[in-house]
Design a binder for these strands. Structure first.
Lengths: 162, 162
DNA sequence: AATAATCAGTCAATATTCCTGACATAATAA
DNA sequence: TTATTATGTCAGGAATATTGACTGATTATT
């Protein structure tokens, strides 16, 4: 096994680091291409997808929570969110604990559309997981998690571990 | 070891697939943030970085080659490339085999700037590789490569394996 | 040699996404 | 009462990318 070999830092050479950069770039591009092709039909963009995705994953998230998660300005979110609400994909309810808050959740229509978008990515990810095998997948998660800023890692873990 | 455990497809459940989606999103965001902060000072954007990166990795690449690699239109490339040439980061030479071609390469100034941009990402990637270990890194590469479209995988391998 | 195709560049118009700044309203906290 | 927070909106602008149309130089085809 790799772990029984004498320690080697060959995987930390410049070529191996650049390999990570390039694989991330190309994989991310193809991976976002699937939903992009569906979104374009509804005159939506990647920003709409992100909102649908994270509202779907965090029902009743307040607007401020979504802004922190996506790290965009409320002006940027405004247009996208308004369109999604106008077209019946998302609804907001006044908060109970804090009535200033607007809690966001997907409608039935939103749930269906998000599922369609996710399914276009699911096939790609599932195929990649299957081809690479469970150990590779663990490594994939481990490296990605360590690429994320330390200060944000907790919120990501909270996001993905449920 | 994982490989001695009875076969399991738990890693192919929806939760695990969504974990991949989310880790990719957050990791890609932080990972592109490092060079973004440097680029903004020179009034450059992410598009300039991509051109600098791939010209650096493919010296004497013709314009058409860069267009194929980046999958953008020549009109999009035009503005970015003109700026990079005007400011002395990239030069072009007439092709020898085919004198219609303009072969691109980084100047000394371009090499230094690309190195600065890469170094901001190198620390992040190297730390992630080191924390995760060589086996995890292999898995990371394996999964990313399988996420890339089959039809593009060869050109990516050609790009990264040198 | 004439014609067609390719590589590169440019001009114009447009779309999308995101930004900063300023201001307003309602609700909560000090 | 005053300050702060959560949300929303208006205005203006920047960056990235698109499609379409056209030009010039060079190479390939017939």
């Amino acid at each position: 096994m790799q772990t029984r070999l004498p320690p080697s830092n060959l995987y930390l050479r410049e070529e191996e680091l650049r390999r990570g950069v390039e694989l991330l770039y190309f994989a991310y591009r193809d991976f976002t291409g699937d939903p992009d092709n569906i979104l374009i039909k509804q005159q939506f963009g990647r920003a709409h997808h992100r909102v649908l995705y994270f509202v779907g994953r965090n029902p009743n998230i307040p607007v401020s929570g979504l802004l922190k998660l996506l790290r965009i300005t409320k002006q940027s979110l405004s247009r996208v969110l308004s369109q999604l609400m106008d077209e019946g994909y998302i609804v907001q309810e006044q908060g109970i604990m804090d009535r200033r808050q607007r809690l966001l959740k997907l409608t039935e229509k939103g749930i269906k559309f998000e599922a369609e978008l996710f399914s276009s990515q699911r096939e790609r990810i599932a195929r990649a997981y299957k081809n690479a095998g469970p150990e590779a997948v663990s490594g994939f998660w481990e490296v990605l998690l360590n690429i994320i800023d330390g200060e944000h890692r907790d919120s990501v873990l909270k996001q993905i571990e449920k």
